[in-house]
Design a protein around this nucleic acid. Structure first.
Length: 597
RNA sequence: GCCCCUAUAGUUUAAUGGAUAAAACGAGAGGCUUCUAUCCUUUUGAUGUGGGUUCGAUUCCUACUAGGGGCGCCA
């Protein structure tokens, strides 16, 4: 495989540089920017010219001639080019062997061992257990799961986890909303005691024929309105929080009932998009523990108590971060308080080496403060904590500029709405093309819609904001998941048609023809995975898949594959190599391939 | 006021110190009696502004401009 050739080259270059007097040289083989420059190029001559006080082109020339003398297997020639690049041209045979090697590796093609032995924890999705998941959660979840798969493919042990912040005023609003607005008989009292004795007098999601998460969303919206208009409702809701804290039996019963609706609905959405948690944390189980950590920090003079009794961090000088409150002046916990406890719990439970939080960009300061405080408390090292701040998913306003979605303004798009909308558009295409032979159209439309949505969210850098236009952003043409899927379907169609003919041993050609660019592109898949792991962003893989599809489709347009020639089995092998690469890449993105569309 | 993020073609994005800045959408032209035209070929067009570092800057530093986010008892 090309991986081995690259390693051989790097070894020889390293040795040569050391002999030339370079201290601790770093050798990186980059993909050549143009095919005229070979398959890989190296910039060490320019990088170390100053250190060894020689002209970069001279260094490159001598390095190239040394490499040519060493005659590394798979390397046809090495060239030095102004101002000092060293370009590597692989032999046709090596490129063909690489493609055939893909078939041998199968689903393991693209996997690497860069994270072997490292325990990662990835927290993702962060749905609110009082509302349905919206597109922001969708993006979060897709980004998080792509990291989970990427790290697993790199040999890491990965745990995906989720947290439900399931206590406090927001949940109490849902409880009130349910109690007040989901009665079968409007005359029934809005009273927890009465509800506990007469639960069957209240509606369930199935009675209204709505999904449970939309059901709780409705409770929340109705409650929110009453809460801000009616002081009695506000008092009632706040009292529920107090009753809950003092473990009132019926309050807890109602709390569990309402939360379960949310959990059930969110599970449906997560299941639909293939997201998964190995473990779920519930805030109510650990939020009090945070106070012990704050006390410990106070004892060790890491924190300070201010006049009114609240506990404050001391991060200004040591970390250059603004300080924040760790414990309220009434001694109660904050989000930060429980996050400290949770971080330690996570670290210990999983023996975690690296922890990742996929959380919105508005939490950046909070996360930095958390990491710094955890370091002060010796919970872990800051460098092992990463905040993946995916960009906002917003809408375009009249002027075309970015506008954050707001649940108050009613501009929030739910995750399922987006997928359903794309699904409709996909189904429309089926009816237009009159492909009635596809028996499982609905199932297919679902798979294709998920492919389109996932790819749309994961094809660009996750930290950028997305101004979401349901028509444009989840397009099914051009650089889209549908395009990649269509290309995969093409490969499957050809392989099906070839049948047993494709099973023969391919006879590689003596020289490369139209397929040269395709073979070249196949060399770079593994690097795209490595780049994605390094940056903790899957988009390098997505971009690679698009490039591979362009090459494959160009080749497909130029050359008949099933031509009955001696080359046929070889060409079929290339089709198969492309198919495996697309499938593996899609796998990392979280897209399930289909065989027909 | 302070801190963080972002700025590439008309639009959505790619390229994180390298060579001629790469795609898609849009607009124009062409291509199916041939393995699925949801495709292919081709034309068009871009690094916010001013300095600096470097052999080399979209990439790093700096000032500015514009947009977004955040800044001790919300989550």
């Amino acid at each position: 495989m090309v991986k081995d050739i690259k390693e051989s080259i790097e070894t020889v270059v390293l040795e040569w540089l050391r002999n030339a007097g370079v201290e601790d040289p770093v050798v990186v083989l980059d993909e050549s920017s143009l095919s005229d420059f070979g398959e890989f190029s190296c910039n060490v001559a320019m990088r170390y010219a100053k250190q060894v006080k020689q002209n970069p082109f001279d260094i490159a020339t001598r390095l190239a001639s040394h490499l040519n003398e060493r005659a590394i297997a798979g390397v046809e020639k090495v060239e030095a080019v102004q101002p000092g690049f060293v370009n590597f041209y692989l032999t046709a045979e090596a490129k063909v062997q690489h493609a055939l090697g893909i078939i041998e590796l199968g689903e393991n093609f693209g996997a690497n061992t860069t994270q072997a032995g490292v325990n990662w924890v990835v927290e993702h999705s962060s749905p609110n257990p009082n509302k349905a998941m919206h597109v922001g959660h969708l993006r979060n979840s897709l980004v998080g799961m792509s990291l989970v798969r990427l790290l697993k493919a790199s040999g890491a042990k990965v745990v995906a986890d989720g947290v439900y912040n399931n206590r406090g005023i927001a949940i109490a609003k849902n409880m009130y909303g349910y109690l007040a607005h989901m009665k079968k008989n409007p005359e029934a009292p809005t009273d927890i005691g009465y509800w506990a004795e007469h639960q069957d007098e209240w509606l369930l999601p199935e009675d209204k024929n709505v999904r449970p998460d939309l059901f709780v969303t409705e409770c929340y919206v109705l409650a929110e309105k009453d809460f801000s208009n009616d002081p009695e409702v506000e008092a009632f809701t706040r009292q529920m929080v107090i009753d809950w804290e003092s473990n009132d039996k019926n309050t807890w019963l109602l709390w569990e009932r309402v939360l379960q609706f949310a959990y059930d609905g969110i599970d449906q959405t997560l299941g639909r998009i293939g997201s998964h948690w190995d473990f779920v944390w519930y805030e109510h189980e650990h939020y009090e523990d945070g106070k012990n950590y704050v006390q410990k920090g106070l004892d060790n003079n890491l924190f300070q108590q201010i006049e009114d009794g609240a506990i404050l961090t001391d991060l200004e000088d040591k970390y250059g971060l603004s300080d924040t409150v760790l414990l309220k002046n009434d001694g109660t916990a904050l989000y930060m308080t429980q996050d400290i406890a949770l971080t330690d719990l996570k670290k210990k439970k999983y023996q975690a080496d690296k922890l990742v939080w996929v959380v919105g960009p508005d939490q950046t300061l909070h996360m930095r403060q958390l990491f710094a405080v955890c370091e002060q408390l010796e919970i872990g090292d800051r460098k092992d904590f990463s905040h993946i701040a995916y960009g906002y998913v917003g809408l375009k306003d009249e002027n075309g500029s970015f506008k954050k979605m707001s649940s108050r303004a009613g501009t929030v798009l739910f995750a399922d709405e987006v997928i359903d909308e794309v699904k409709r558009s996909v189904a429309e295409r089926f009816s237009e093309s009159k492909r009635a032979d596809l028996a499982n159209e609905t199932e297919l439309a679902e798979k294709l819609a998920l492919a389109a949505v996932k790819f749309a969210f994961l094809k660009s850098d996750s930290k950028l904001d997305v101004a979401f236009d349901i028509e444009e952003s989840v397009d099914v043409q051009g650089d889209s998941g549908m395009y990649v899927m269509y290309t995969y379907v093409r490969t499957q169609s050809i392989l099906r048609k070839a049948g047993a003919a494709g099973a023969g041993l391919p006879t590689p050609p003596s020289s490369l023809g139209q397929e040269a660019d395709l073979l070249r592109t196949l060399l770079y898949f593994e690097q795209s995975v490595l780049d994605s792991v390094k940056d903790l962003s899957i988009h390098h893989v997505s971009q690679y898949l698009l490039a591979l599809c362009h090459e494959f489709n160009s080749w497909y347009a130029k050359e008949a594959i099933l031509d009955g020639s001696d080359n046929e089995s070889y060409k079929l092998a290339l089709v198969q190599a492309v198919a495996i690469t697309l499938k593996n890449g899609f796998g990392l993105i979280g897209v399930e391939t289909v065989d027909e569309m």
